[in-house]
Computed example of a mutant assay.
Amino acid sequence: MFENMQIMKMAESMARHAAQRQTVVSQNMANANTPGYKAQDVAPFSETYTEGADSPMRATRAGHIGADHMVTSSVMTRSDPGTMSPNGNSVSVETEMVKAVEVKRQHDQALAIYKSTLNILRTSVSRS
């Protein structure tokens, strides 16, 4: 009954997406002075997470039948217009700091969804 709760899966996916995006943001900041480095980002969670019967089956682990790899959001070179340094680097430390705050908020939101769901479950089980 409680194994396949879609809200829990969504909260887990959101937290994993935030972790992956934080990794990309930290790599951008680490390479802020690397000549020729292009800033990268991950597609927004709303674009990568789909649910419902009309979506194709998704493999969440490499061991699943028909799964060749784990399903993750792809890292892409950011194409937003910004200033490019003379050495060809497109990383703006200020922009990356703002993105880091966005990622923290997304992770906090995933944890809040998870906690709220657990509280609702605890309340419903204790009243039965």
Rank of each mutant, 00 (worst) to 15 (best):
T34N: 01
S55R: 14
I65W: 05
D41Y: 07
R78G: 03
M84Y: 09
D80F: 10
E51N: 14
T72Y: 12
P81E: 02
R58G: 06
S79P: 04
Y49T: 04
G63M: 10
E47V: 02
D41G: 04
G63T: 14
Y49D: 02
Q40V: 09
T60Y: 11
I65G: 04
M70N: 07
G63K: 13
S46R: 05
A39K: 15
M70F: 08
A53C: 01
G63A: 15
R78S: 11
E47M: 07
T83A: 13
A59H: 09
E47Y: 06
S46P: 01
R61C: 05
T50M: 13
G36T: 11
A67Q: 05
V71D: 08
M84E: 15
Y49Q: 00
D54V: 04
T60A: 09
H64I: 04
T77Y: 00
G36I: 13
D80T: 14
R78H: 06
G36W: 02
M70Y: 09
S79Y: 07
V71M: 05
P35H: 04
A32D: 03
P86I: 14
A62E: 12
P35Y: 01
D80C: 04
P81F: 00
P86W: 11
S85C: 06
N33W: 00
P35C: 08
T60N: 13
T34A: 02
S74M: 14
Y37R: 08
S79T: 13
A30P: 02
T34W: 00
H69C: 06
E47I: 01
K38E: 01
N33P: 06
T60R: 14
A30M: 07
T34Q: 00
N33G: 06
A67H: 06
F45D: 12
V42Q: 00
A62K: 11
R58P: 03
E51G: 10
G66T: 09
S46T: 04
I65H: 05
G66V: 04
M84T: 15
M70T: 15
N33C: 05
D80S: 15
A39P: 07
G52F: 10
N33A: 15
S55K: 15
M76H: 00
T48Q: 15
G36R: 06
S74R: 15
H69R: 15
H69G: 08
M70K: 07
I65F: 06
T83E: 13
N31V: 12
V75C: 08
S46E: 10
N31T: 11
N31D: 11
P44N: 07
P56T: 09
P35L: 08
